[in-house]
Design a protein around this nucleic acid. Structure first.
Lengths: 102, 102
DNA sequence: CAGGCATATAACTGGTAAGGCATATTGCGA
DNA sequence: TCGCAATATGCCTTACCAGTTATATGCCTG
């Protein structure tokens, strides 16, 4: 886990990879087909994701099957926490305002 | 809002700026003192944050007072949503497991 | 054990972004 | 209006990152 999740998630392609793996684990080749990227590009992104602990992989014959590991995302969610309460606070205020209009 | 929030948040300094503005709006000079960075560096980060809609600023005499706008963070939170439910699912499973151990 | 698949890595390239210093801009007070 | 204070911007250098092509590694099958 050399780099933090924020840095890794900055790349749209990596978020797409995660979004696909979230629905079903898959091999590198399947990701290549799904994302329309070259195989080395996909492998490199997977390397970064692995180093950040966001994916794990297991070997199945010649294939490597990748799956998501959400653990590092909790750091992102934790950072986001205070901000989330800010916009829910705003929503609450809006609701109160609307209520008072009736 | 030229760039997306993910890219902007990848920079640790920018997250620190947001974290400070979240507690209290402040001027550029106050941020410079608080973060121990050069004034141009801070101004540049604020520019990026502004372009992404993450902060707004108002003019007060010679100062510019910056404050957080959480709206763009909702995109991040939305993306995170499905993953969050993944780890709460895991937590639920763990709880059931621990319960069954009693 | 040879050949072919699937995946990883190396070397290179172009683009981009951050930080530093110097300077421009803007608003204010004397 | 002059000059100062606060902030923004330009320019330059450096570092890093994504993507490409070519090649290496590992594993199965005939």
């Amino acid at each position: 886990m050399t780099v933090d999740a924020f840095t890794v998630l900055a790349e749209p392609s990596r978020r797409r990879i995660l979004d696909r793996l979230r629905r079903a684990e898959s091999s590198v080749g399947e990701l290549v087909d799904a994302l329309g990227m070259s195989q080395p590009a996909v492998s490199k992104h997977l390397r970064v994701l692995r180093d950040a602990g966001l994916v794990t992989c297991r070997t199945a014959a010649q294939r490597r099957i990748y799956r998501v590991d959400v653990a590092p995302l909790r750091a992102v969610d934790d950072w986001l926490g205070p901000y989330r309460s800010m916009w829910t606070a705003h929503l609450d205020a809006l609701e109160r305002h609307l209520d008072s209009q009736e």
